[in-house]
Design a protein around this nucleic acid. Sequence first.
DNA 1: ATCTGTACTTGCATTTTGCAAGTACGTAAT
DNA 2: ATTACGTACTTGCAAAATGCAAGTACAGAT
Lengths: 141, 141
Amino acid sequence: MKKRPSTVCPIVYALDIWGDPWSLIILRDVLIHNKRHYREFLASREHISTNILSARLQSLVEAGLLVKIEGDSNRAQTMYRPTQKALDLFPVVFAIMHWGLKYNPNTDMTIPIMQELQADEKGLEMRLLQNFDDVNPNISQ
Amino acid sequence: MKKRPSTVCPIVYALDIWGDPWSLIILRDVLIHNKRHYREFLASREHISTNILSARLQSLVEAGLLVKIEGDSNRAQTMYRPTQKALDLFPVVFAIMHWGLKYNPNTDMTIPIMQELQADEKGLEMRLLQNFDDVNPNISQ
DNA sequence: ATCTGTACTTGCATTTTGCAAGTACGTAAT
DNA sequence: ATTACGTACTTGCAAAATGCAAGTACAGAT
């Protein structure tokens, strides 16, 4: 899909940012599994290759979904963390998970988050959001 | 992305079915704009090309999201209509629209559905679902 | 000094997409 | 009856994206 510089449709806008086959998997790892390092993304079951991971991280940073935080004089400290724009994808990610859960007979229900998603989605979101207080301090109450 | 025959993750399952750049645009047209004919999909702003449209329709039928209804002896009557599996994507589509609405400054808010989505999402879903009573009769009350 | 781990980049084969054209069939107009 | 037109596709080919393997650069540990 050729990049459309500006679209009038919110769905196309979204797809242009994270509609490729890999970006949403990275975002899943960030949002749900609290991953932040290159090595962690590489370790996912889906086996993304290094060049694609690199390109996707860069485009997500450009799109304002992730910020790259580099350690001083040590690349191994580099972290990718979500912005509010990425955190606002929680409802999307949860909606997709609900759908996948309903229709994928191979879903691994022993993953703790799966149970929690069905039992208390809002609570799950609240809990996961706390992982990002360092980057996007939430008004706690 | 190579097709993964079975995945344990509901998100990857979903992406394998409609995670390419075009399928969700077709589903948007089916679910939101009530399109059903090849010619209608071709007429979308996004200008999908004929070979891709053909391939995507076929794969969505195979995945059980659409059914192809052929007229007798006239190809121009061919229709593609959503199954329940596709109708269950309404929450996903709405979640994506909400996100796109928030971050896409070019969203055309004069499209009636945009206003309605923000004002009364559930009502919008109910109304749109009535378009598919022929295919998936809903329990009305 | 060497080895290991990490975050990348590069090269190249394979696959997917984008565009233009063509085909097959049915209906409508002359 | 013949021609033209609309519709739902398929085919061919160039361009782009992906997948895989290998290589590079640098920091910390041994």
